[in-house]
Simulated scan of single mutants.
Amino acid sequence: MEQGADGAAVARLAELDDAALPAGAVTVAVEYSTVNYKDGLCMSASGSGLVRRYPHVPGIDFAGVVEASEDARYRPGDRVVLTGWRVGEAHWGGYATKARVKAEWLVPLPAGLSTKQAMAVGTAGFTSMLAVMALEEHGLRPDQGEVLVTGAAGGVGSVAVAILAKLGYSVAAVTGRPETEGYLRDLGAARIIPRAELAETVPRPLETEIWAGCIDAVGGAMLARVLGQMKMDASVAAVGLAGGSALPGSVVPFLLRGVNLLGINSVFQPYARRVAAWERIARDLPMDKLEAMVRVAPLAEAPALGAAILKGDVQGRVVIDVNA
C-alpha cells in the first residue's frame, strides 16, 4: 500500500528487499494469508484509520515457516501461525512472502494442521473458537437448546456453525442471503432464520425465551433484538459489528433474565489462551467442512476481495496464496 499524490492509499504489488522488513525477532517465510473484514478496511483508500504510515503491507493473518529466529522459542523450519496484535494495521502483515514479527506474537501450528488450513481458519475461525470457549465457560451445553449464529454465511459465522454442529449443538443460522441456505445446512445448521426476522428492534425489551446461546457477528439492532430472546442466564458472545456499533436496546434482559453479553477480543489474547484455542480448532473443527467454505486466490486479487468483503459479498473464507 502506498499513498498517491491526492493522499489516498493505493494497493499494488512490489518487490522489496529484506532490509525493508520491520524490526522483530523472528522472520517467517509466509505461505498463506487470508481476507478478513479488517483487511478490507486497511486496503480502502483511507485505511479507515487503521493504517497510520505508508508504505504498508496489509494482511492481519499469516501462516508459514520460520526462516530465521533470534528467540529460543522458535527455530528455522518451525511452522507457525499469527493472528492479531495489530499486525497488518500498525505493523507490516502477511500480504508478502516474508514477515518479521515479535516472537510472542506467534503460535506453533498444532500437529495435523497445515498452513493452508490455518489460514482457512484465520482470525475469523480463531474468533469463532474463542466465542465457543467463552459460551462453554459460561455454562452452555448441547442439551440446553438452540444456539443462534448471526451473520452465519460470513467467515466468523461459517466456522462457528461448523464447530457448534460438530460439538452436538442445534444451530440456527441467520442470513440475509437466501442462496446460502444449502451452504449453511451443509456446514451443520439445523434451521435457517431470514435476517429480516431479527433486523429491527421491538418495543418490548423481553420476548419469548428461544436461544440457549448466541454468537453474534452483526451487532446493532439485531443484537438488541436477540438479547430479548435469550433464555434465562444464557450468554451472547459478541464478535462483530457488521450491522453497526450502536446497541439500541434495554438493560432489562440483563436484570430480569441474567443474560450475559460476552465481548470477544481476538487481537490481544494472551499466549496460553491462543494455544488452547488453536488446539481446540485442530480437534473440533471438521476439516471437510472447512474445505467446503474455502477458496484460494492469488495475492494480486487481495484488493478486489477486500472491497468485496466490505460489501458483504464474500461467502465463507478466502485464503490468499502469497506465492501465487
Rank of each mutant, 00 (worst) to 15 (best):
165 A>S: 11
241 L>K: 11
169 Y>G: 04
115 T>G: 10
173 A>N: 09
270 P>K: 00
121 V>K: 01
306 G>P: 13
79 R>W: 13
81 V>W: 12
104 E>D: 15
59 G>P: 01
308 A>K: 14
166 K>D: 15
222 M>S: 15
90 A>H: 15
112 G>Q: 02
295 R>Y: 07
33 S>D: 05
257 R>W: 08
220 G>P: 12
128 S>Y: 10
156 V>I: 08
288 D>G: 03
132 V>E: 11
3 Q>M: 14
295 R>T: 15
184 L>W: 07
84 G>T: 05
233 D>E: 15
183 Y>G: 04
71 D>L: 02
256 L>G: 08
129 M>S: 06
65 V>G: 03
39 D>H: 02
13 L>W: 12
24 G>E: 03
189 A>W: 08
156 V>D: 10
283 R>E: 06
21 L>Y: 03
44 S>Q: 03
278 W>R: 04
168 G>K: 04
24 G>P: 04
163 I>T: 09
131 A>I: 02
240 G>V: 02
295 R>L: 10
154 G>S: 06
74 Y>P: 08
34 T>A: 13
285 L>Y: 10
208 T>H: 12
25 A>L: 10
75 R>Y: 09
91 H>S: 11
108 P>W: 04
244 G>L: 03
161 V>H: 06
170 S>N: 11
289 K>M: 12
93 G>Y: 01
36 N>I: 06
198 L>H: 02
96 A>I: 02
279 E>P: 08
112 G>N: 04
14 A>C: 13
131 A>Q: 09
107 V>M: 07
101 V>P: 00
258 G>S: 01
268 F>P: 09
232 M>P: 12
20 A>P: 12
70 E>L: 14
247 L>A: 09
44 S>M: 03
72 A>Y: 07
43 M>A: 03
300 A>H: 11
274 R>I: 01
259 V>R: 02
311 K>P: 13
123 T>E: 08
149 V>H: 06
146 E>Y: 08
47 G>D: 03
19 A>T: 14
309 I>D: 15
96 A>Q: 07
78 D>H: 06
219 G>C: 09
203 P>L: 01
280 R>C: 12
234 A>K: 08
217 A>N: 15
30 V>D: 00
310 L>I: 09
110 P>W: 01
306 G>I: 12
39 D>L: 02
157 G>P: 06
206 L>Q: 00
207 E>Q: 11
157 G>D: 10
130 L>D: 05
131 A>N: 07
94 G>H: 00
50 L>N: 03
173 A>I: 02
233 D>G: 13
127 T>W: 10
149 V>M: 07
